[in-house]
Simulated assay, not measured.
Amino acid sequence: MKALICPRLGTPDVLDVVELPEPVAGPGEVLVAVSHVGLNFHDTLVIAGTHVVRPEPPFSPGSEYAGVVVALGPGVESVGVGDRVVGNEEYGCARQLIAVRADRVTILPEHVAERDAAALLVASATACHALVQRAGLRAGDTLVVLGAAGGTGSAAVTIGQLLGARVIAAASTPERAEAALAYGAEAAFAYGDDRAAVKDAIRSLTGGEGADVIFDPVGGTVAESAVRALRWGGRHLVVGFASGDIPRLAFNLPLVKGAAVVGVFLGEFVRRERPVHEQNLRRIFDWVAEGRLKPRLHDVVPIEEGARALAVLASGQVAGKLVLTC
């Protein structure tokens, strides 16, 4: 089988497509013929060795996939050969065949295409978990989404709107901010190089009240500025650090605002609270069936172009999701 392999830690140019022996499903596992793999910014951090998840090379990047079950290991009864499934792992998905635990796959409803599922899974599941379980987002809340043109950010814009929030999108350039309006944002602004301006823009767009919830996959100075624009009782969701910098928060800010800084870690949530994650996925797939949630695709490329795709992702020039076909 073909597999995209990271032979040593580094930038995406270290990646290569190689031929590997086909895996075998062990006890409690299923063998999935992978058709599509969704790429995320954190994949670039994993191959660089700077993510909280740090596998030893060689390994495959990719944390979400869709495909068809082609073999069952001993003791598996929850799924069958021929079932279309989706799943997410911390890494290891960018390959034509993958052996995974049967209790970590979800049967894909008929109305959801495998390509769309691979584009939606991690981004939408992260956004849904963040906004529902971690933030307790309520109808009428003001939600500010940083990095709103990226895969996770665009999902948060749409899901926030579906949950009844007033959504304000923030992005690095005017063009990316404008794109976020198509995802369901009521207003949008660009912060460019003057990232301290985030606070002033949020206050201006909320009539001085500030945000109830900030969805933050960016970190760095953007986060440091945005947290100052929380209103009383606000929640700042720490989703990631696409800027490459972990912010240094002055703890007096959440104190005087009665605010909360809340971590969002999808992988650990799925491991610890699988039934709740499955409820979120059913909700997401229902929105897809109703035509209210659609993947925002930047490009769909073959696995042989995986290194190039991850290089583009690392550059910050992707609007929506990049998907590999296997």
Rank of each mutant, 00 (worst) to 15 (best):
H42Q: 09
P58K: 05
R283L: 14
G73A: 03
M1I: 03
D212W: 11
L322Y: 06
Y91H: 15
G92S: 05
C6P: 05
L293C: 09
A71E: 15
I98L: 15
V122W: 02
G62I: 02
E19V: 12
V276N: 00
G87A: 10
A3W: 01
F269T: 13
H111L: 15
A182W: 00
E89C: 10
A155W: 12
T221Y: 07
Q161Y: 03
E290G: 10
A223D: 01
R296T: 15
A148N: 12
R54G: 04
G49E: 00
V86Q: 03
R231Q: 10
A66E: 07
S154Q: 13
T221R: 06
G136C: 01
L143D: 07
D200Y: 00
E304H: 09
P7D: 05
T11I: 04
G49A: 05
C326H: 13
S315Y: 00
L131A: 00
T158M: 13
V238Y: 07
P27I: 01
P302I: 13
G219N: 11
S225A: 10
Y183L: 09
G184M: 04
K294T: 15
A71G: 06
D43E: 00
V34N: 02
I98R: 10
V312A: 06
V213E: 14
A123L: 01
V264K: 03
L146M: 03
A211L: 04
A148E: 10
V69P: 07
P74W: 01
R166Y: 09
L253T: 12
G73D: 06
A250G: 06
K2L: 14
Y191N: 03
L120M: 12
E22R: 11
T126G: 12
L131K: 05
Q133L: 02
V238I: 13
S204D: 15
R95Y: 09
A123Q: 15
A309H: 05
R203D: 13
L45W: 05
L162Q: 15
V222Y: 08
E77D: 15
L310M: 08
I303G: 03
L181F: 08
D141F: 12
A179H: 06
P12H: 08
P74H: 00
A226L: 08
A94V: 04
V238C: 12
R292A: 14
Q317W: 00
E305P: 08
P21N: 07
G49M: 07
V85S: 12
K257D: 03
F251M: 14
L131I: 03
R101A: 14
L15Y: 01
A182L: 04
N252C: 00
G28D: 08
V239L: 11
I159E: 11
G160S: 13
R8A: 05
D83C: 02
R228P: 07
T142A: 03
R134N: 02
K321Q: 08
D116L: 02
G26K: 03
P23E: 12
V288G: 11
G49F: 03
C93V: 10
P7S: 05
V256F: 14
A113P: 08
G82N: 10
A139W: 03
A226S: 05
L20C: 07
G267S: 15
V100W: 05
L45C: 02
A182C: 01
C326V: 14
G208T: 09
R235G: 09
H51G: 00
L163S: 06
T142R: 07
R282Q: 08
